[in-house]
Write a protein that binds this DNA or RNA. Structure first.
Lengths: 334, 334
DNA sequence: CACTTAATTGAAAGCACTTACATTATAAAC
DNA sequence: GTTTATAATGTAAGTGCTTTCAATTAAGTG
């Protein structure tokens, strides 16, 4: 009762009548100790008001068992699916997942500055954000293992896809199905911090069409803001023109779904009157039967996490740049 | 360039040609050591980029505040939207977001046991998971501020909705639109750890129909597993019967979308031949134009986080049970 | 009933430092 | 020149915790 100093794990062990090892186990992996013992330890902890000392713990722990993910403010399903992949890879391990959402360059840079120094992450995954060389250098210097997704950098490991190839695949597919008047729809917003793969998808699409002797007419290239309403309005405009396209490649599944809805409202048969093709293969896409270019988002997150873990446990694994394959998923809309 | 391991005080001692005690003294009480020695130690420190690791970690842990979210293995969009709400509330603060995904009771209980004691977290949000009274007690005892979402408990704050009322609202709405043969579709899986609001939604739906003199026939109540294929197969079976319903209330938007697709494939006009109504109001629902009962998922996460923060900063705020309103969102399918 | 196998547990060896104590060298005092 | 403070440093014993490993016991298994 008259204890001046804060109770330690030893005190807990003594009053519970077990060894400190057991107390430690109760604190970190309760299932490893017998029910009875556990509850008596809990009782002792409660009785003494024991609080483990962070510093000692940090010292004894070789690792932090925490990995962080920096992601643009996650509103888009594609980020969510990537995160899901990361979470699933971490699930079988004892790593915690810390999420840093970024909604401004300022905040992103602040993370990039402090995280490597803080030393309380074992690894970092950065989703779809691009940054200065300087920061890459810093991450390296301070030894914070990092894996990039969707934005490659020489000195850091990354998981990416070939957006341009994806555009080409879409073109090939639509051409092979015999469509004549192909259109493209993508979003405009290039956030100050994010990256914009849409441009690349368009480039690939355009290139292949040109090669096939079906150059993409400028009037068939549409860029509109990402939101539902804008997309719908644009779709309506496109689809009510006299020379409306007979196939639309949307740089994003979400927008493709919006287009699909408008097409239905206009009484167009899909894919007979209008083919619609997306990019990503989100969860929804399966539900609505969208034909799309799959980039396997879940997988990208999972692989990024696995790559990271392997580098953490084995520091001299080489930096890798993994290129994920794209697949055409043929469903009902094209 | 890349360090194998972070340098320790031993490394510094070795390269400076002194004992670790001296290095420690330089760090803690510099005037106790000779000028020359001191500067050579400093030199070694700079050269190795030495950072007292454990201490740094402990310090960082102390000043970085973090709140944790325990969520069932997040595959369902509804959890994601809730998380998004939490993240957005935390965004303006300096709190970090740590995510604990749960895919077994075992793991869940482990979190519940250790988190309150370890003092890593400043606050905890538990999404759609139910647990023993004992754990609630423990959370309380150890002073880990907690907010529950979708599973109320007397002693802990919570954010919830009235699922039964939601079922009633759906019934009222469909009846008011003049539909006659109403059906219900929900999922079966009651995971060992999760909770199952679907049952309540059905209860409310059934109750109101009975009250209105249109009792829900058993043959119109369908429970099928959550996945697309099973839902589709069920929908196809239901919609090809002679006495097919003219309206379906799906306990979940995701399943509603699947039903919608099947209806279209069968050439049914929606909502003329078949009305479809969902529950949740996911992002997708807007894209496909689904009429639904909105429970404002993002908002629930946001409110939970705000509630938590207010309790953290002001411990004597009372425990609150916030009931979120439900709204019918009328779109195109009913 | 002997023989694996699995579940519990404690002893003890770290972890990265701090600090009391001992040792050595140096300079001042006699 | 011996003695004695004094400063500078190293040795080694903690610090509070985690984790490996081996010992003990319980529970099947044929």
């Amino acid at each position: 009762m008259a204890k001046k100093t804060a109770p330690t794990i030893y005190d807990v062990a003594r009053t519970a009548g077990v060894s400190i090892a057991t107390v430690s186990r109760v604190l970190n992996d309760p299932q490893k100790v017998n029910d009875e013992t556990r509850s008596s330890v809990f009782e002792a902890i409660r009785q003494l008001g024991y609080i483990p000392k962070a510093e000692a713990r940090a010292r004894a722990m070789q690792q932090n068992r925490r990995i962080g993910v920096i992601t643009p403010y996650f509103t888009a399903p594609s980020f969510v699916q990537r995160l899901r992949g990361v979470a699933s890879a971490l699930n079988s391990t004892s790593y915690e997942l810390v999420i840093y959402t970024v909604e401004s360059t300022h905040k992103f840079y602040r993370y990039l500055e402090t995280l490597p120094i803080n030393h309380y992450l074992d690894g970092l995954i950065i989703l779809s954000l691009q940054f200065d060389d300087l920061f890459a250098q810093r991450l390296l210097e301070f030894g914070l293992e990092t894996v990039l997704v969707e934005y490659p950098h020489r000195v850091l490991s990354s998981v990416e896809i070939d957006d341009q190839a994806g555009g080409r695949m879409a073109a090939d597919y639509l051409l092979s199905k015999g469509y004549q008047r192909l259109a493209f729809l993508g979003d405009t917003v290039i956030p100050e911090f994010g990256i914009h793969p849409i441009t690349l998808r368009l480039a690939g699409f355009r290139q292949r069409l040109a090669e096939a002797g079906h150059p993409l007419a400028d009037k068939y290239v549409h860029t509109v803001p990402y939101d539902v309403d804008a997309t719908r309005r644009a779709a309506r405009a496109i689809l009510t023109r006299d020379d409306r396209p007979d196939a639309i490649f949307s740089a994003t599944d979400l927008q493709a779904v919006a287009i699909l809805k408008v097409a239905r409202e206009l009484g167009l048969r899909v894919p007979e009157d209008l083919a619609i093709m997306g990019f990503d293969d989100l969860d929804i896409s399966e539900y609505v039967g969208l034909t799309t270019v799959r980039q396997h988002l879940d997988e990208s997150g999972k692989i990024a996490a696995e790559l990271l873990l392997s580098r953490i446990t084995n520091r001299d694994r080489p930096v890798q740049h993994i290129q994920l394959p794209l697949t055409i998923i043929e469903r009902d809309t094209a």
